[in-house]
Design a binder for these strands. Structure first.
Lengths: 115, 115
DNA sequence: CTGATACATCGACGCCTGTCAATACCAGGG
DNA sequence: CCCTGGTATTGACAGGCGTCGATGTATCAG
């Protein structure tokens, strides 16, 4: 096998090591596409920092209209990055950390530094 | 214009932990946008697995024309994910693992806390 | 110098996406 | 029941992106 020295980032990222299938690449690219928008990143940040946020509280800090916020929440929810729980008239959004970790690990596991 | 350099000092703007600035979100989104394409992911994978690849060897496995491959290499290089070294007629592309790690860390520090 | 090769750039096309106004849907209050 | 308020959906628009053919530029072989 090709011996490859871990240069700086600890060890060997899986995306950079294992052969990447076309369907896997497409699916992974969709995950990144959901993150490839500053509004969605800030939305994710708002939800994460607040723990639970309703959509009405996202419009002001994001500076976007209600349909636009709804669109972004849908994109993130469709990507599995957030989940919405409808309580009464409000939808409370929360982060799905497992999904974040999944995408993060695709860029390389920074963890396996266990001796 | 004062463009933000990828901060080599501060490691990770934690998307899930700290408040995310608009410019930080935009810059981070650009990083993700570079990864939000299956062709580019596979290109990244090919370069990483081969260590060094010239563009001519990327056209066949990616199934894309030479201008398209050149476009994607430019996008990835502009995002700092790969670097091209011109040797003779060929350009040899190689991964920049530090940038991968930087974007990965932005998705949340997988490490709970360094004691 | 001439030809061939590797890569970058340009122009154009079609698709996808972010955005908002308008509207429909759903839950709670009177 | 009707009204109010929060959210999702629709329709439409502008802009960006991926793609390729054609062309330009640089480098090597002869």
């Amino acid at each position: 096998m090709a011996e490859r020295q871990p240069d700086a980032a600890g060890c060997c990222p899986p995306v950079l090591e294992a052969p990447l299938d076309e369907s896997d690449a497409t699916e992974l690219a969709q995950g990144f596409a959901a993150l490839a928008d500053p509004i969605r990143l800030r939305l994710l940040n708002l939800v994460a920092t607040a723990g639970e946020v309703c959509s009405c509280e996202l419009m002001a800090p994001l500076g976007r209209s209600q349909p636009t916020v709804s669109h972004h929440t849908k994109v993130l929810a469709d990507a599995g990055l957030i989940t919405g729980e409808k309580r009464g008239r409000w939808v409370w959004w929360s982060i799905v950390p497992a999904r974040l970790a999944e995408i993060r690990d695709a860029l390389g596991s920074a963890e396996p530094a266990r001796a």
